[in-house]
Design a protein around this nucleic acid. Structure first.
Lengths: 162, 162
DNA sequence: CTTAGTGCAAACGCTTTGCACTGAT
DNA sequence: ATCAGTGCAAAGCGTTTGCACTAAG
């Protein structure tokens, strides 16, 4: 997996129901509200870290987030990033994407969606399904199904052409 | 995630196309053949490790495999387990299951299948889909799709009742 | 003022690697 | 006899934790 991928999701045909996501400014409002609900304090660090994850669809890893936040906040430490990502996840503001192999990646897109993951460069793109995934009938015998996570693995456009 | 899960896949209704898997003895033959093709040597360690993964549907992690193989082969080292799992994966004999969170798990079931993963105890069960997963039309714009990995997350029967 | 959150440093857990010995071919 | 594979030990890497200081409420 390469280090810094600036993967931009190519325009997908008539594929996806677009996320109902609002503008960029209400990220702070969403965070503020979520912190209040969870009884957590609203700190500069939390704001900057959430902003960084919410601003992009690149699914950055912890280290990438650290580097970007440091540009505006040079004293922030890497453990604060890890702790904050963890609490943002607990608040349901972001989710952790289990990578093909390697470090965890974070996603602030809270709409039901899946991921295309390039096995070459590790870039991740959001994918929206129009139809439901057909689970087998006996699935409840295994347990209560809570969520579906589909990883569509392959080679991305960029890697194919290089 | 607990340490030693002895999760047994419950009988699933009319759910799954059973894997065409043969008996237990031909594991050694499969390994021998694969090693020859790959130009690798056939060692006791490789045999024992592959046997351990091929014998169970528990999707054990590296450490569990180490412990079990040590019962018959007390001097085997943990790095040999990691190296061997890696080469078995390269040969296509086993595959690595990205866990919900935590250590990698291994699977010798080479039929197209997906996984039910309990977010409580971490147990993994194989799931066979009768119907195809409906990918969106524009998916090729993202890249060449090579494989689909569906994680059905939830709480398993055992954890639900405890 | 109180106590959650931060930064530092050090530890942690899983995995990988350098090296010399062992054993499969 | 040769060299891939092994075992040992130590390092590597992402992530987590203990502690005292800082700052949000």
């Amino acid at each position: 997996m390469r280090e810094e991928e600036t993967f931009v999701v190519p325009p997908l045909g008539g594929q996806s129901a677009e996320p109902p996501e609002g503008g960029t400014t209400n990220h702070i409002e969403r965070l503020k509200l979520a912190c209040q609900n969870a009884g957590l304090r609203m700190t500069h660090q939390r704001m900057e870290i959430f902003r960084e994850v919410a601003q992009t669809d690149e699914h950055p890893d912890a280290d990438t987030i650290l580097k970007r936040v440091r540009e505006r906040m040079p004293t922030i430490s890497h453990d604060t990033v890890y702790r904050t990502l963890s609490s943002l996840e607990d608040m349901g503001l972001i989710s952790r994407v289990d990578p093909v192999c390697g470090r965890a990646r974070y996603d602030a897109n809270s709409d039901a969606h899946h991921h295309f993951i390039c096995t070459e460069c590790g870039c991740i793109a959001d994918v929206y399904l129009n139809d439901e995934i057909p689970l087998p009938e006996g699935i409840e015998n295994l347990g209560r199904v809570e969520s579906l996570h589909l990883q569509i693995r392959g080679m991305c456009h960029n890697c194919k052409n290089n």
